[in-house]
Amino acid sequence: MTPRDRAGGKTLNLDRREVVARLLADAGDLLVITGLGSSTWDCATVMDRDLNFYLRGAMGSASSIGLGLALAQPQRRVLVITGDAEIMMTAGALATIGAQGPKNLSIVVLDNECYGETGMQPSLTAFGADLGAMAAAAGFKLAETIWDEAALTRVLPAILGRDGPALHAVKVKAENYPHAMPPGDGTTLKDRFRQALLGPDAMA
């Protein structure tokens, strides 16, 4: 009996890279932070852009980076794309975000119910933990777990809107795509992001 069976859950149908492609299709001036592992490979593959900042470590930090950025840039939309175990590691940070209430912060969790980088071991959402419900309980204005294409289409405007803080846990199939490295090391990508966002002030 698998954890998923024990949890009595539904089938995972969505393709993570197709979800990311939809999120970034009209990215425009969106500020994007990606959590370590597959979320970073997904975004670097689907659409690398100067206003993407990728993590390949510091697990649990993606949502906090999104918060600091959203507070520093209240006129810009910030989208954090990360995995379910990455967000679960600092689940308390959801309450920190709920307390600050940044309208311009949106988190999409690509919830594959496993640790994709380490051998597909089941993660805690496989046992029934519901990240959408957790975010709602932590004070997120918009929070929902998304199971299918129709629901994703329905919430896409909210994910990319300005009525946050928002967290959408999008259930995706557990599959391992080829790794795709971001085009540079952490310092390079940080400086690239700042120059794209801040222009000459980036070097001040």
Binding site: L31, I33, F53, A58, G60, S61, A62, S63, S64, I65, G66, L67, G68, L69, A70, L71, A72, Q73, R76, T90, G92, A93, A95, T96, A99, Q100, K190, F193, R194, L197, L198, D201, A202
Partner: peptide, 26 residues
């Protein structure tokens, strides 16, 4: 100054990094 109470201290490192990406000091 935005004072931000945390659940755990490690959040403060990410917040400082995000603030810097956005042009603020933390």
């Amino acid at each position: 100054i935005r004072a931000i109470p945390l659940a755990t201290e490690l959040e403060g490192i990410g917040i400082a990094a995000g603030a810097w990406l956005g042009g603020q000091r933390a």
